[in-house]
C-alpha cells in the first residue's frame, strides 16, 4: 500500500502550495489527470525524491520514504522523454539500471538480451539511443524499469508522442507489469491509457 499524507510542496514563486493526500493498494494503477501545470509531474518527482516536500509523509508498506535519497526508494520512473543516456549504448543504458557501476553477472547480461528480444528489439544492445525511434527508446526505458524489479512504477506521460502501434506495444508491457503485482502511478491525458490501465482516476 502506498500512502501519501498531507504532502505539501511549492515552487519559490508559487503562492499557494500543492497538497497531496491519497493511497494506492498494491498491484493497482492510479491515473492522474489535469491541465498542464496542475502538478502531475511535481507529484511524481516528489514520490521519486527529485524534489523535497515541505511537509507530509510518503509511506510504502509502512516504511517512510520521504527522507530517503532517490536511489534508495523502491520506485522506478519512466518519463515522456530523456529516459536514456544519449552517449551510452542501449545495453549499457539498461545495465546501469541493474547495477549503478555496470557490474553484472553473466546471467544478468543474458537477462538484458532476452528482455530486448521480448520487447521486440532483438540484437539492439549495441545501438546508440540516437539511432532509435521514439517508440523504441520508450520500450528500452520500460524494459530497464521492469528489470529493476521495483514494486512502484511512476509513469509520466510515457506514451505521449508515440504512434498508435508503439502505444499498443507499450500498453501490453505495462499490463504485464500490473499483472505481476507492480503498483502504477500514471500521469496521462490519454483517455485510452486510463481506460486500459487505470483502476482509479484522479483529476488534480
Amino acid at each position: 500500500m502506498l500512502e501519501v499524507r498531507q504532502l505539501t510542496f511549492a515552487y519559490p514563486e508559487q503562492s499557494e502550495p500543492w497538497c497531496f493526500d491519497f493511497q494506492v493498494p498494491p498491484g493497482q494503477c492510479l491515473a492522474i489527470t489535469g491541465a498542464s501545470g496542475a502538478g502531475k509531474s511535481t507529484l511524481l518527482s516528489l514520490l521519486a525524491g527529485f524534489l523535497r516536500p515541505a511537509s507530509g509523509s510518503i509511506r510504502w508498506r509502512g516504511e517512510a520514504l520521504e527522507s530517503l535519497p532517490p536511489a534508495e526508494r523502491p520506485v522506478t520512473s519512466v518519463f515522456q522523454e530523456h529516459n536514456l543516456f544519449e552517449h551510452l549504448d542501449v545495453h549499457t543504458n539498461i545495465a546501469l539500471g541493474l547495477h549503478p557501476g555496470k557490474k553484472l553477472s553473466a546471467g544478468q547480461h543474458r537477462e538484458i538480451d532476452a528482455g530486448l528480444a521480448r520487447v521486440g528489439l532483438p540484437g539492439f544492445g549495441k545501438r546508440m539511443p540516437g539511432e532509435l525511434s521514439g517508440g523504441q527508446r520508450q520500450r528500452v526505458a520500460l524494459l530497464r524499469s521492469t528489470l529493476r524489479k521495483q514494486p512502484l512504477l511512476l509513469l509520466d506521460e510515457p506514451l505521449t508522442g508515440l504512434d498508435d502501434q508503439a502505444q499498443a506495444v507499450m500498453r501490453t508491457l505495462l499490463l504485464e507489469q500490473k499483472a505481476a503485482g507492480v503498483t502504477l502511478i500514471l500521469a496521462s491525458h490519454h483517455e485510452e491509457d486510463r481506460q486500459v490501465l487505470a483502476d482509479r482516476n484522479w483529476n488534480l
Binding site: P70, A71, S77, H82, N83, F85, L96, P100, G101
Partner: peptide
C-alpha cells in the same frame, strides 16, 4: 533529466 535518472539509478560518486 539525466541527473534525476542517475540519482534514481544510484549512479553516484565514482560511477
Amino acid at each position: 533529466p539525466s541527473r534525476n535518472l542517475a540519482d534514481q539509478l544510484g549512479i553516484l560518486g565514482w560511477y
